[in-house]
Design a protein around this nucleic acid. Structure first.
Length: 418
DNA sequence: CATCCACTGGAATACCGGGTTC
DNA sequence: GAACCCGGTATTCCAGTGGATG
């Protein structure tokens, strides 16, 4: 590489022309001290959880709301307030345990996280696999008893956990309070999906959902206030056009009132402006940022796909290409997929599995798919690409292993016109 | 209303990482 | 430390099902 005398990081560490405050205020994980338009929610949640300060078990709570409506922020905020309040009350014993069920979505993992959360500093961590579940459960139970305080378990994206692994862990955690009086467990669930409770056993449901809160999407002016607040933290308020901020808020409001998205857009707009050595963020910077964000999301999701999913996507792209944007059915893309896998010396998955992969790709928004029935002639799943086939191909082919497919063309077999 | 294709749910299998037992 | 137990994950295997059309 270059051997310039400059330090590699020099050009990155220069003071920004735009960001004069905390840059983290524009990052996804940032928890501000103020929560514009969520003050009441934070207060209510604090009220619900307040018995814990007096060593009583608070009601279990579920918070519902679409992505980016401040659920996690409110919870994190209230958590930190509880921690602060605890310091002035020596009589309260509270343990806060955060579990992201998007990452940990199986019973073992959840129990493990609770157990590890209750670990005394000198204790060894629990094994992350190997133990029978009941043994793990019993150790966790012991730890709850030993702690003899209020253990608040926050289950972010709890709907994912339930959809994947059922409600058995929830049942176990809830049961702790019936098995012992030394130490209480309080569950706080956060869910994107209003209907996930349908998957719950009625007994779990009634005990888990003692309180519910529903957070509504933000409207444009609320998002504007949030952006304004963040831009103050980040010290960029002077560098951004009023109308750019409004545009940013309006764009995000259109998409389900997702404040996270608005902040992402703002952050990218800042980065673009810095790269362009410009000093002001204007309307068009926001539009650029929006495009970049969308591109990045597609690249990110496609490039992290498992090999076979990529192959399936690639097959659909190829067919899309030769059909000039047409959709393809299971017969077509499965056939092609098998040939491609064969050519790479990989054994192809069964059609059953590919059907599931189609479902996954559809959930990710990369393709659209639906089952079509042709009556007497059976039925099939048809898939349509949501992005241009050339772009999709490029992204898939950027995979190390898949680069060798650059020259692959689908054999021009009989492709029935739909 | 039978028919046809493949969709679909669930059980079965294989494999992995890691603890436990003797 | 070999053999076995345990739970998780990925995939296959199999049988039952769906639904428009002819």
């Amino acid at each position: 590489m270059g051997s310039s005398s400059k330090n590699l990081f020099e050009k990155f560490s220069n003071d920004s022309l735009i960001v004069k405050g905390q840059r983290q205020a524009l990052e996804p994980g940032f928890i501000p001290e103020r929560l514009p338009h969520r003050e009441k929610e934070a207060e209510l949640l604090a009220e619900i959880l307040s018995p814990s300060l007096k060593n009583y078990k608070p009601s279990n709570v579920i918070i519902f709301g679409k992505p980016g409506v401040g659920k996690t922020s409110v919870v994190k905020f209230v958590e930190s307030e509880i921690s602060k309040a605890m310091q002035s009350r020596l009589d309260s014993k509270i343990k806060l345990i955060d579990i992201n069920c998007g990452v940990v979505d199986n019973p073992y993992g959840v129990l493990l996280a609770v157990g590890d959360g209750l670990l005394e500093s000198w204790e060894e961590k629990l094994p992350f696999t190997g133990w029978p579940l009941d043994k793990l459960y019993n150790t966790v139970l012991e730890k709850v008893k030993n702690f003899a305080g209020i253990t608040i378990v926050v289950l972010d994206e709890i709907d994912k956990l339930v959809k994947k692994s059922g409600d058995s862990v929830l049942y176990q955690l809830l049961r702790i309070n019936e098995v012992t009086n030394e130490g209480r467990v309080c569950l706080l669930g956060i869910s994107n999906d209003l209907r996930f409770t349908e998957y719950l056993d009625p007994r779990v449901k009634s005990r888990l959902i003692e309180e519910t809160m529903v957070y509504n999407p933000y409207n444009a002016s609320q998002i504007y206030d949030i952006l304004r607040d963040r831009s103050l933290y980040a010290g960029i308020a002077d560098s951004i056009d009023e109308s750019a901020m409004k545009t940013c808020a309006a764009l995000a409001a259109q998409e389900h009132g997702d404040a996270r998205r608005a902040i992402d857009m703002l952050r990218i707009a800042v980065e673009l402006t810095e790269k362009g050595n410009s000093k002001r963020i204007e309307d068009n910077t926001i539009y650029e940022a929006k495009n970049k964000l969308e591109r990045d999301v597609v690249v990110e999701t496609v490039s992290t796909l498992p090999l076979h999913s990529k192959l399936v996507l690639f097959s659909i792209s190829l067919i899309d290409e030769i059909k000039n944007g047409g959709s393809s059915n299971m017969g077509e893309f499965y056939d092609l997929y098998e040939r491609i896998a064969d050519r790479m010396g990989i054994s192809g998955l069964t059609q059953r599995r590919v059907a599931d992969i189609i479902g996954e790709l559809t959930n990710l928004g990369l393709i659209d798919s639906k089952v079509q029935s042709f009556g007497r002639y059976g039925r099939t799943t048809t898939a349509t690409l949501n992005y241009s086939s050339s772009r999709m191909k490029d992204i898939v082919l950027s995979d190390e292993v898949l680069g060798q497919l650059k020259d692959v063309k689908p054999l021009q077999k009989s492709l029935p016109v739909s």
